[in-house]
Nucleic acid binder design. Structure first.
Length: 557
RNA sequence: CGGGGCGUAGCUCAGCCUGGUUAGAGUGCUGCCUUUGGGAGGCAGAAGUCGCGAGUUCGAAUCUCGCCGCCCCGACCA
């Protein structure tokens, strides 16, 4: 395949758009891969679409390899489907009406539609199934950002597995996991599989794939020794041990005027903030619950939801005073007539806690002796915590979530009545899983991980073209025949035949980032050689035209 | 949805505070000359509803109000 720069719509820019911050945003726009149409709405220009298609093809091959069957569901779906699952109430749902006033939803995933089709599965003999499609998703995002990192409309590969039981689901899940590992590896990405929250998807267990990058919205917690990776929200770090004051036989009141923050309290008492406890009153359902973490820790909202099993909200000032008889900065677990969920770090030792009396705290408060909590892991892990596997130091790194896989169970099949009959003639709900990957995000992550100050360094598997030929003015005829021979050999070739200076062409070639560059200059007429350079390496090497095809193939790996 | 910022040529921006001929620069674009292995130089040229609407004024890119769009932080979130 041969493309000529003189004919391509390839609008490269010398400067990045003023509103771009992420490297992928800047370089994809500058390189003429994408253009913004509105907030979170992007057009893929010819080169960008080629890369997107290459990513899609890799995903397709790997999902086909685990038995996935490609199909295509509509973007526009009747609102009734979303009422059945209950997801109609999610704020991000794009809703609209047709001319007769009927309600529709622009899908943001396709669990509902796929469960609808799964009603045609009737027998255990038809299971398992894996169905997938590449389709456009719409999300009414409150805040799109970062180029392709967070958008309102995007193409997603989502596959759905249908099994007769949870054992089957585990197998389908593992197959996808393996497929995803291969996909990201083929894309040249460093990606880590981590536990994550189910969020709006519904279902039991979910896991994300995080690519560490320079820009992104997620945080990857990783051990310096490389044996532990986790999503920030779910990470389990081991905090340092506090410096405890001498042990007390019983809690002792101490006056702490104006000390309503941990910092002021620790300073006033001259103690380690880690030897205090922090009380966060929340309302779950119709009851008040006191969440207790160490003074130097932050409460993880996600972990607390998991521990409580339901969503919650912070208690209001009035509710706090009503329940504890004191203000927010002076409350504690001792004597409080509410359930207490204490973080595991509070199991051992004596801590300073609020006395449920304005301006007073208690020293020497001990779990088990002075209050009866339920223990759970509800603290947010921090960089600097010790690794739960090896004790090494945990680090935090910005990341992009490229994929998310869920064990949905019967969350959708039950309301949709997607059932099958087993060997004994019994009806059972189909057990589902869902598995998403965003090709555009993947593309952005590749740029984040593969670029330098001059431009992109595409891995060969996803590059828009294999070879970028820079034609030095005066060598057009030689270049044309070289381009043709590379193309005939099965390589994708971009030949820069524009009437432009060499420097400009080199700069564009670096920006666009095809893996191999061939410069056809004066030497081709003198000794029959051209210069071959790998984008990621930056060294020109003279290669005779007769060996060019094999050399380029070799360089592409 | 809360806070902040921006909107002037394809792109990056100046001009606005302190209203006043025909609205500027760099880059990009077109033509010609020169040049030709890392965005070279020269000459000539095209290109702007100054986001939209109202208002104040003899006069508005500039002042006031409203709206819209976009970006950043937060909240929210695959």
């Amino acid at each position: 395949m041969l493309a000529r720069a003189s004919e391509l719509f390839l609008p490269t820019l010398r400067e990045p758009p003023s509103d771009a911050e992420a490297a992928s945003h800047k370089l994809l726009v500058r390189g003429g891969f994408i253009r913004q149409v509105g907030a979170g709405l992007w057009t893929f220009l010819p080169l960008g679409w080629r890369v997107h298609q290459k990513v899609i093809q890799i995903i397709r091959e790997e999902i086909n390899a685990i038995g996935g069957q490609e199909m295509l569901c509509p973007v526009l779906t009747p609102a009734e489907l979303w009422e059945l699952s209950g997801r109609i109430t999610i704020p991000q749902v794009f809703r609209l009406k047709d001319r007769t006033g009927r309600d529709f939803v622009l899908g943001f995933t396709h669990e509902e539609t796929m469960a609808f089709h799964a009603r045609e599965l009737q027998s255990y003999k038809q299971l398992p199934q894996v169905w997938y499609h590449f389709s456009t998703k719409a999300r009414d995002e409150p805040r799109p950002r970062g180029g392709l990192l967070r958008v309102r409309e995007f193409i997603m590969k989502d596959s759905y597995s249908f099994d007769r039981d949870f054992e089957g689901l585990d197998k389908s899940f593992d197959k996808h996991k393996q497929a995803y590992d291969k996909i990201f590896e083929r894309c040249g990405l460093e990606v880590h599989f981590v536990e994550a929250e189910s969020g709006i998807m519904g279902g039991k267990e979910s896991s994300g794939y995080l690519a560490p990058t320079g820009s992104g919205e997620n945080t990857l917690i990783r051990c310096e020794n490389g044996d532990y990776f986790a999503d920030y929200d779910a990470a389990r770090g081991i905090p340092r041990a506090p410096g405890f004051p001498p042990r007390l036989e019983a809690p002792t009141e101490i006056e702490t005027p104006d000390a309503t923050t941990i910092e002021s309290l620790a300073a006033l008492l001259g103690i380690d903030p880690a030897s205090t406890s922090k009380a966060m009153p929340v309302v779950a359902g119709d009851r008040v619950v006191l969440a207790l973490v160490r003074g130097d820790d932050r409460l993880s909202e996600e972990k607390l939801v998991t521990a409580l099993g339901v969503a919650y909200r912070p208690a209001t000032d009035a509710e706090i005073r009503d329940t504890f008889g004191a203000g927010g900065g002076s409350i504690g677990p001792v004597g409080a007539k509410v359930d207490v969920v204490a973080d595991d770090t509070l199991r051992e030792g004596q801590f300073v806690a609020g006395a449920n009396r304005d301006g007073w705290h208690l020293r020497g408060v001990e779990a088990g002796r002075d209050y009866e909590p339920r223990f759970a892991d509800i603290r947010q892990a921090n960089a600097g915590d010790a690794c739960p596997n090896c004790g090494g130091k945990l680090e935090a790194q910005t990341a992009i979530e490229l994929g998310h896989i869920f064990k949905l169970g019967t969350f959708y099949s039950e309301p949709f009545g997607a059932k099958f009959v087993d060997e004994d003639g019994q009806e059972n709900p189909i057990v589902m899983g869902s598995y998403g990957i965003g090709p555009a995000r993947t593309m952005a992550a590749i740029v984040e991980q593969h670029h330098d100050d001059r431009g992109i360094e595409w891995p060969a598997a996803v590059a828009p073209y294999d070879v970028h030929i820079v034609v030095i003015p005066g060598q057009e005829e030689h270049a044309e025949s070289i381009a043709t021979s590379l193309s005939v050999a099965g390589l994708d070739v971009l030949v820069d035949d524009r009437d432009a200076r060499a420097g400009e062409k080199f700069a564009d070639a670096d920006l666009i980032g095809c893996p191999v560059r061939v410069t056809v200059g004066r030497k081709v007429a003198e000794d029959g050689t051209v210069d071959v350079r790998e984008r990621a390496e930056g060294e020109d090497k003279a290669v005779s035209v007769s060996e060019l095809v094999s050399t380029v193939r070799e360089r592409l790996g």
